[in-house]
Amino acid sequence: MPILHKLAAALIVCAVVLGLTLPGPDRHKEQATKARAAGAATRTAPPTAPGPSPSASGSGKASASPSASASPTPPAKLAAATPAAVAAKANELGEVPVLMYHRIMKKPEASLDRSTKELHDELTRLAKEGYMPITAAEFVSGRIDVPAGKHPVVLTFDDSTPGHFGLDAQGNPKPDTAVSIILDVAKQNPGFRPVATFYLNKDLFLLGPQESAGLKWLIQHGFEVGNHTVTHPDLSRMSKDAVQKEIGGMESKIVSLTGAHTTTFAYPFGAAPKKRSWAESKDGEYDFRGIFLAGWKPSESPFSKDFDRFAILRVRSEGKIKENDCKLYCSTAWLDWLDKHPGDRFTSDGDPNTISFPAAGEKSLAKDYRQYGRTY
């Protein structure tokens, strides 16, 4: 097994040992006590107020959502959900699958690879089961604008490899790349939004002289580009200066090519540095609104009091194979579980300016979002 995959597997095993849950009827009840996934640090502060929403390009920073202004005195009693939200069985405090992909290839060569057919089939499943893709930037900022009854899903691709994206001679996405497959599935399933987030390392899809044109194409078509460091090192083993050089160097390159800063970051191997603050921001260089791990469980809702925007869990895309407990923790297993437990899944009320959910979930609503809460 390649060394990168060994490191990733070791981190995941550690997470499982620390207490990742098993699928089953009691799994949702146990989630509050589960360990964070590989590389996660414990929360050091309560949730912040709504962060800036992404710009139209999916990167950069703009106004907040649901509202740019915070209520000085949250209402003692939440307003009632609309009849439409009730009819949709909205639960905007439910879990959101953040799917993690690595190389996309016609014939996979390593354990983290997914075939072009596997990607197409999984995206088609998501479309058929009512999932709507949103970008990582939209997710962390609370800009979840999907139709009533639909479920947000975040598609993330690490390492900016050629199977993710490329441009042909006419300036269109190359066939059999992730971007091309996403666009194809959207055409085949009207209403399925063709967006995803790509976490970049220095090689940038091996675009060569097309780097700037390629990144601008992605942003102009609603995709998000995020920071994944220059060389994909294990940040947990590095000094503050080294960590910030890796992140700042990649950020500088992205800004030079696109003219905009990134909004989100993903840890290589899911491994956080000794101090999370080193990765969260550095004056004049980067200032992330969300950071993603490499764990194997769906994320809490961004409106939940348990949500930590700087330690967001992801789910590896994979079938129910024996390796690394994928029978329990990878995408197929989790999508099956959420399908059988729809009450635990984030279901939209159709209004991005309200947060609707069953009354029993009120204690889970983060205090900064209380003014937007609607119950039934």
Rank of each mutant, 00 (worst) to 15 (best):
P2I: 09
K6D: 10
A8R: 11
A10V: 15
V13N: 06
C14D: 13
A15S: 15
V17A: 13
V17M: 15
R27M: 13
T33H: 10
R36F: 13
A38Q: 14
A41G: 15
R43Q: 14
A45M: 11
A49T: 11
S55K: 13
A56V: 15
S57P: 06
S59F: 08
G60K: 04
K61T: 06
S69A: 13
T73W: 00
P75D: 06
K77S: 13
K77W: 06
K77H: 11
A80E: 14
A81M: 06
A81C: 11
P83Q: 13
A85Y: 00
V86H: 03
A87G: 09
A88E: 01
K89N: 12
E92N: 04
L93A: 08
G94C: 02
G94H: 03
E95V: 10
E95I: 08
V98P: 03
L99T: 01
K117W: 12
L123G: 06
L123S: 05
T124K: 10
R125K: 08
K128G: 10
A137T: 03
R143C: 09
P152M: 03
V153K: 05
L155M: 15
L155R: 05
T161D: 03
H164C: 01
F165W: 04
F165E: 02
F165K: 01
P173I: 11
D176S: 11
T177V: 11
V179A: 09
S180A: 15
I182Q: 04
L183W: 14
D184P: 08
N189E: 05
F192G: 05
F192I: 02
K202P: 08
L204G: 04
F205K: 01
G208Y: 09
E211W: 01
E211G: 02
E211L: 05
L215C: 02
I219F: 02
F223D: 10
V225Y: 00
V225Q: 01
R237W: 05
M238T: 02
K240C: 03
K245H: 10
I247C: 06
I247K: 03
G248A: 11
M250A: 07
M250F: 00
S252Y: 09
K253I: 15
S256N: 07
A260M: 15
A260R: 14
H261A: 13
T262G: 06
T263F: 00
F265E: 04
Y267Q: 04
K274H: 00
K274I: 07
E280H: 07
E280S: 06
Y286I: 10
A294L: 12
K297G: 08
S299T: 09
S299I: 02
E300F: 12
P302R: 01
D306W: 14
F310Y: 15
A311K: 04
L313Q: 14
R316M: 09
K322P: 14
E323L: 12
N324R: 14
N324A: 07
D325V: 02
C326N: 10
C326Y: 08
D336V: 00
W337K: 09
L338N: 05
H341W: 07
R345F: 13
T347K: 11
S348F: 04
S348H: 03
D351T: 10
D351C: 05
P352D: 07
P352A: 10
N353M: 07
S356W: 01
G361T: 09
L365I: 12
Y372P: 04
R374V: 09
T375S: 08
T375K: 12
Y376L: 00
